[in-house]
Amino acid sequence: MSIGIIGSGALGSNLARILAKKGIAATISNSRGPASLASLVEELGASIRAGTVEEAASADIVFAAVRWVDAEKVLGRLPNWNGRIVVDGTNPVEFLDPNSPDANDPRNPLAAYGIKAVDLGGKYSSQVIRQYVPGARVVKAFNHLDVNVLPEPEVSAGKRVLFYSGDDAGAKAEVRQIIEATGFFPVDLGTLDVGGQLASLPFGPLAAHNFIKI
């Protein structure tokens, strides 16, 4: 089973860190090319290599760790996924320029956090992402926690709970294995139509809750 990560920002780099901690091999990529990832892969060691987006996307399990505003541009240009697994770690939020009017908009309850919600017209995030990855088996996971706590899955004599959801039982089972192998406690929220909404930032009722299984 090969693993690819598309995106090397806060989420992508921390995903690589938790895989590297357990010696799990993966290819990480970004739009700037493998050379831009030299310092990260040097930090993480031999199990993580840098590759192109196309190389990462050819893996058996691919983590989509791109910003929401880039998701269609990055994922939409890739070929059909032919049944491979895409782990949707995205959230429909836009990061704000601190000097922009949006950053001080009193109508935006998330302005203090430097983000605003993207209007999806009544859809939830994985419903949209699924359109960008035709032929993929989509599993929603690794999106509901603060990315800064991801490298520490085991805390307070317990394990952080990681929610996941999807429509394909086989795909969910493989993602669950990764969740367990990296030290988290997996909780299945059911189908994408159910779990995809429950754990999606910023307004899902389970979003940002940091539960610990003792």
Rank of each mutant, 00 (worst) to 15 (best):
V147S: 10
N99L: 11
D102N: 03
P109V: 12
G166M: 05
N14Y: 07
L37N: 07
I5S: 05
D193P: 02
D105I: 04
D119M: 10
L120K: 12
N99V: 01
N91L: 04
D102K: 11
N99G: 15
F163M: 06
G121S: 10
A157M: 05
R77Q: 15
L19T: 11
I24L: 11
L19F: 14
A59Q: 13
N80T: 11
Y132L: 00
G9H: 10
F142W: 10
A171Q: 02
R17Y: 08
G12Q: 09
A111W: 09
G122F: 09
P106R: 09
A112R: 14
A71W: 03
V149M: 00
D102P: 00
G122K: 10
A50M: 11
D193Q: 13
T90E: 05
S100C: 05
R17N: 10
S36F: 13
V155I: 14
A56L: 09
G51E: 10
I212W: 02
K213T: 00
G121I: 08
G83F: 12
G9Q: 12
N99S: 12
V139Y: 03
D60I: 13
A136H: 04
S29W: 01
K73N: 13
V161S: 03
L198S: 04
D70H: 11
V74Y: 05
K21Y: 06
E72D: 15
A141W: 02
D105Y: 03
A20K: 07
I5R: 07
N143G: 03
D88V: 02
I129N: 03
R160Y: 01
G158E: 03
A171N: 03
A35N: 15
G122M: 09
A50V: 09
M1A: 14
G195N: 04
I6R: 09
G12C: 08
I28A: 04
S156W: 01
E72I: 03
A117F: 06
I214E: 04
I115M: 11
N148F: 02
G195P: 07
A25C: 13
E42D: 15
A64E: 12
V175F: 12
A26N: 10
G4L: 05
V53P: 14
R137G: 01
M1Q: 14
D193Y: 06
A173W: 09
G190A: 02
S13V: 08
G33T: 14
V138T: 00
V175W: 10
I61R: 07
L11P: 09
D188W: 13
R84F: 05
P151H: 04
F163A: 04
P109H: 07
E94M: 06
Y124F: 15
G122T: 09
N108P: 08
F203E: 01
V147T: 12
L189M: 02
L11E: 05
V194C: 00
N104W: 08
K73C: 00
E43R: 11
A103F: 09
P109S: 08
L44E: 08
W81V: 05
N104D: 04
H209R: 04
R137Q: 13
S126G: 11
D119H: 08
L11A: 11
L75T: 05
A136Y: 05
E94G: 03
Y113K: 14
A207W: 03
I61E: 07
L201T: 04
E154G: 05
E174V: 03
V86L: 13
I18M: 12
F95H: 10
R160G: 01
R176S: 07
S126N: 08
A207M: 01
D188A: 12
I18F: 14
L198D: 07
I179C: 04
